[in-house]
Every structure is written in C-alpha cells, then in structure tokens.
Design a protein around this nucleic acid. Structure first.
Lengths: 144, 144
DNA sequence: CGGTATCCACTTAGATACTG
DNA sequence: CAGTATCTAAGTGGATACCG
C-alpha cells in the first residue's frame, strides 16, 4: 500500500507512455477538431457497441439471431438499435437475403475493422489488468 | 457507392487485421475471463470516463475545478461520481491538501496511464476517420 | 474549494405484442 | 427470422441547496 502508486512501472516507462500522444498530436491541435473527436468517441463509448464490435471482430460474419446469442444479456431492441447506429456510422455492413424466412448477415466494414484493431489494445489491457483493478477495488472499499 | 465497402484497405490488410487478436488470444480463452473482461470494459465504456482519461492524460495533474473546466458540459455531480469510480478502479490518484480552502489534485496512476496508452489508438483512429464517419452518415441518411 | 444530499425531468432499456 | 411499435420501470443526469 506504500508504493503501490506506480505498480509494475518504472518512472521511465511512465514518462515514455505519457509522451506518446503529445508526439503525435501536439497541444496545438484544433479545439474544434478536438470537440468533434470527443463527440465521435462519446458515440462509440457504450457497452453494447464495444461488445458487438468485439464479437464481430472475433466471429467475422453473423446473422442477427447469432449475434443475439453471442452478446449475452442484450435485448432485441438494443441489438437492432445499436447495429443500426453502427451501420449508419459505417462500421458494420448489413446484408439482407430476401428469402423466406429472411436472413440478415452482419460483418464489420474496413472502417469497423480498423476501429476493432484500435480497440484490441483495450481488450488486451483489460485481460492483463483484471487483477489490478480487482485489487484496487478491494483496497479502496476496505479503506472505507 | 459501388466498392465503398473496403474503403482504403486491401483484402490482405483486412485479413491481417482480423488475425491479430486471434493470434494473441485464441478461441480457447476462458469464457469466464471473457465475461469478466466484458464487465470491465463496460465499466469504462462511458462518455465521461473516456474524456476524463483523455484530459488527465494530456494535462497531467489537475485540480477538481480545473477538471470541471476542461471537461466541457459535465456537471459537478457526474465529475465527482466518475472520478470516484476511476479512483476506486485504481485509474486515478486523488491527493487532498488539507489547507483552507481545501485543494484536491487528480492525476492518472500507472494503471490509468497504461489504459490511456491503449486508448491512444482510439483517439488517433477518431481523428483519422472523422471524415469517413461523417460521409457514411450522410450516405446512410440520404439512402433514406 | 470541493464536495454531499435531495429532488425531479428526462432518457433509456426491457418486456410484450405484433408483422412482412 | 428479423425486425417494429408501444408501454412502462428503472436509471441517469441536471439544478439547487447546503456543509467542512
């Protein structure tokens, strides 16, 4: 509990990590662009979008009902709604086969795939840091 | 509108991108872990958390009131709430200076910094694909 | 200054029923 | 099968007032 602040990181590693973004997008970045980016991120920053992105990333192409099974706990309404939004944003490609009964397939577009690639690091981070977060919570809760 | 599906990507690039995660975390990944990861991600997948993470990443250390100014549109309640959750999850470090009036500083922990580093790719993606998303939306809306 | 507590308007999401 | 429509319960967030 004494020097837990830096965890497994050296000062060096922290400095390097912190310099990353500054190098790519210096402070001079257009505030308007910044605002737009925040809006865009806000749109993707919801539970179901991120999970659907992950599922389609892993499974490739899925039918509506298959998606419903893979995305545990989602309601039909939210699945439709989220898929529609992702389709509108160009992340997902929806293919309708006009058979009876109808068949609809969903897969990621190249845009969706590239976002999925960016998200990969988040999933990796989550897997690697599950324990750390759990410990942090226990620690926080025990301190009252 | 004809071959817009793959955008600027070759089939090769898509295949490579899609194989990325599978290489690191093959299908044999424990479903229970997978569930935990989804829970964890769901917790971070909200607007304010992501924006605060970004702001602290860029600014380093900020006082409560400075954060409020940087995170446009957030209410005091949500700022407190989100910061408390991030602190509990071990992402931010809260330092109270017991002066009068009190002064409270927030900064990312090493855990928070590493999550920020992972998120970097998302921000970069957003900046690079603002136009694509805008176009996709216009296209979708114009098609009805 | 940096919160907490309370109230309330609004949004959101789940359940249910129905349809091409 | 893959939705849409409707209703309702629950959650979220903002405004306001007050405290250490």
């Amino acid at each position: 509990m004494a020097n837990e602040e830096n965890g497994p990181f050296t000062e060096d590693e922290i400095a390097r990590a912190q310099s990353y973004k500054v190098r790519d997008y210096p402070e001079g970045v257009d505030p308007q662009i910044d605002e737009l980016v925040k809006d865009l991120i806000s749109g993707f920053a919801d539970k179901w979008t991120m999970i659907i992105l992950d599922v389609l990333w892993e499974e490739g192409t899925l039918r509506f009902s298959e998606l419903a099974r893979h995305v545990t706990g989602i309601s039909q309404k939210m699945l439709t709604q989220t898929l529609r939004r992702m389709e509108r944003d160009g992340l997902v490609i929806r293919t309708l086969y006009p058979s009876v009964p109808p068949k609809v397939e969903y897969r990621l577009s190249s845009l969706g795939l590239s976002l999925g690639a960016a998200f990969c690091n988040i999933w990796v981070w989550a897997i690697e840091n599950l324990e750390s977060v759990r410990n942090a919570r226990e620690d926080f809760d025990s301190r009252k």
